[in-house]
Amino acid sequence: MSTDRVAKLLDDIRALDEARYTLVQTLREAVLSLGVGVTEEVKYGGLLFSAGKPFCGVFSYAKHVSLEFSDGAALPDPHQVLEGEGRLRRHIKLSAIQDIQAKQVHTYLGLAYQAAAPA
């Protein structure tokens, strides 16, 4: 993990919008707490997280934050919140901190982490 690049990206997001920064940071902390083997890097303009292989990313846009799952099409969607129609990826669009609980983000993070973590 390049902490300088991560810190720079977070500083840039904070300078643009404090609420989006808080949302990104809350998601980041949730992902990193999944296990000791979770790593992060700045890639594709956001934060990409891996555990054996990449499993999710957090991307900040002008009016929302997207939590994207690398193999999201293979994840169960018990709460019907995954968006996207691509062959592999799915995402959850978040506009406010309350969306984390309302859209059951922790459930999906756990599923994605389990699918990516080495046995």
Rank of each mutant, 00 (worst) to 15 (best):
Q114C: 08
Q101A: 15
M1C: 05
L111A: 13
A19D: 14
A19T: 13
G86M: 00
D11T: 11
Q114I: 15
Q104T: 08
L94E: 06
K43C: 05
L111S: 11
G46V: 12
G46F: 11
D71M: 02
V65H: 01
K53I: 15
A102V: 10
G45E: 01
R87G: 11
T3F: 13
R20H: 12
G86T: 09
P76Q: 15
G45W: 05
V65G: 03
P54E: 12
R5K: 12
L10H: 11
P78D: 10
G45S: 01
R5P: 01
A19V: 12
T39C: 10
L16N: 09
G84H: 05
G72D: 06
H79A: 10
E83Q: 15
Y44T: 08
S33Q: 04
A102Q: 13
L27H: 02
T3Y: 12
D17C: 11
G52K: 13
F69Y: 10
F69G: 07
A119R: 06
Q101M: 06
A115M: 08
L9M: 10
K53A: 14
A19Y: 02
I97M: 05
L27I: 07
V65A: 01
V58N: 00
S95Q: 13
E29S: 12
T107V: 15
F69H: 02
E40K: 05
S33C: 02
I100C: 03
C56A: 10
K103I: 09
A30I: 09
L23C: 07
L75F: 09
P54C: 14
L48R: 11
L67Y: 04
C56M: 06
E40I: 05
D77Y: 01
L32G: 04
V31I: 14
V6L: 10
S33A: 14
T39H: 11
Q101K: 14
V6D: 02
P76R: 15
Q114S: 10
A62G: 10
L9C: 03
K93E: 09
L75D: 09
V31P: 04
D71L: 06
A96K: 08
K63A: 01
I100S: 01
P54K: 10
L82W: 08
Q114Y: 08
Q25T: 15
G45Y: 02
V36A: 15
D4E: 12
G46K: 11
L75E: 06
V38S: 00
T26G: 08
F59C: 12
G57K: 00
R14C: 04
G110K: 07
S2H: 06
K8M: 00
S66Q: 04
T3P: 01
G110V: 03
